[in-house]
Amino acid sequence: MPCREECVRRTRAATPDNPDAAVGVAAVGDLSQVIRLPVIKFPDIDSGKLSRRALTVRPIDADGVLAEVSSPAGLQQNDEVSASRRGRPTGPTGPVIGRALQLLDAFDPQHRELSLSELARRAHLPLSTAHRLTHELCVWGAVERGDDGLYRIGLRLWELGSLAPRGPGLREVALPFLEDLSRSTGENAQLAVREGLELVFVERIAGSGAVPVLTRVGGRFALTATGVGLVLLAHAPVEVQEEVLSGPFERYTSKTLTHPAQLRRLLADVRSKGFSISDRQVTMDALSVGAPIRDARGEVVAAVSLVVHYGSATPRALAWLVRTSAQAISRALPG
């Protein structure tokens, strides 16, 4: 059949032994249809100036977005230099799972709703990659797309997060005690756990006259400034303490401790007394007192604190309340 013979002849011509051959025939289906393309020669192939892999075809999906293709090594350097000059991150984008997590990490309290282009920019991903992965995340339920075209975190992630043993399980046990603590003082009762070099707030109960705070449930904060953070850092492994104390430290107020020697003395004081005091380290109108929550083995697994208006109560009086609540939560934890 002429079409088949022509296709085979042209395909054989485009071999490493004959790099200057015309590559201009593409087979469709069973080779019964042949698309004839312009004859192109590449004189720079043998000289190493251009790789054969540089010749790629980028398909367009149903939404008109170009699909991602890998760049050859020879051209990738030029692309990275160009990207660097534009102020964009360079280098490989990483595995698919890593790129999907980059998209999810683009959301934060200040960016709860994002367009596709904003997602791609904040995740440092090509628009085509962001488009493809965001579609898959939407199908799974990790991300939701509103009628306005903006993307938001989906409820499926909340469902999975509720299974975390250090979060909701601990919260369910501690919640009645936190409510009592907040009700008796009219202030903020907080529960937190350590995650790496930071803390994560698991719960916060605010009383009717509670002092405003910078924390939120699910939010992260420095270990060196808050009452719960000082407790968690004081009982963290030595290597964690050393890494945190190596800095840098964020200064929230003029009272925020940022000198390692001062922090070491404060942590030793927390361990010896059994509670922490954060005196106007986060805001100038708040005082925080924290205490450790221990599991059945005596290991510190969380911390509870009261955040009150500065000057409304003495730290020692607050310490008794907080330690009593922390001990009650510790006893209520499942063995």
Rank of each mutant, 00 (worst) to 15 (best):
P2F: 04
R4D: 07
C7H: 13
C7D: 07
R9Y: 06
R9F: 12
R9C: 04
T11S: 14
A14C: 12
T15G: 10
N18A: 10
A22C: 15
V23T: 12
V25W: 09
A27C: 15
A27E: 13
Q33P: 01
P38S: 08
D44H: 06
D44E: 14
I45V: 13
G48K: 05
L50A: 07
L55G: 01
L55S: 04
R58C: 09
R58F: 12
R58I: 15
R58P: 00
D61H: 08
D63N: 12
A67C: 11
P72S: 15
A73P: 07
L75P: 05
Q77G: 13
S82K: 11
R85N: 11
G87C: 11
G91T: 10
T93G: 10
R99N: 09
R99E: 13
L101E: 12
Q102R: 15
A106T: 08
P109E: 05
R112P: 00
E113F: 05
L114A: 00
L114H: 00
S117Q: 07
S117C: 00
A123M: 00
P126W: 05
L127K: 04
T134A: 09
H135N: 06
H135I: 04
L137M: 00
V143W: 00
E144M: 10
E144H: 05
G146S: 12
D147T: 13
G149I: 05
G149R: 08
R152D: 02
I153D: 05
G154F: 00
G154W: 03
L155A: 15
L157F: 08
W158K: 10
W158H: 13
E159G: 09
S162M: 11
P165I: 11
P165Y: 05
G167W: 08
G167C: 08
G167F: 12
G169D: 09
G169E: 06
R171P: 02
V173F: 07
A174S: 02
L181C: 02
L181T: 05
S182P: 04
S184K: 09
N188F: 05
L191V: 10
A192Q: 12
L199W: 07
F201H: 14
R204G: 04
I205E: 08
G209A: 12
A210W: 03
V217F: 03
A225I: 04
V228K: 03
G229I: 08
L232N: 03
P237T: 03
Q241T: 01
E242P: 06
V244H: 06
P248Q: 05
Y252P: 02
Y252Q: 08
S254C: 06
L257C: 04
T258I: 08
P260K: 10
Q262D: 15
R265E: 15
L266F: 03
L266V: 08
A268Y: 08
D269V: 05
G274M: 10
S276I: 06
D279E: 09
R280L: 01
V282E: 15
D285F: 03
A286R: 06
S288Q: 14
S288T: 15
V289R: 07
P292S: 12
R294V: 14
G298K: 09
G298E: 07
V300E: 02
V301G: 07
L306M: 10
V308L: 05
V308M: 06
A317T: 01
L318T: 01
W320F: 13
W320A: 13
R323F: 03
A326Q: 03
Q327P: 00
S330H: 03
G335Q: 11
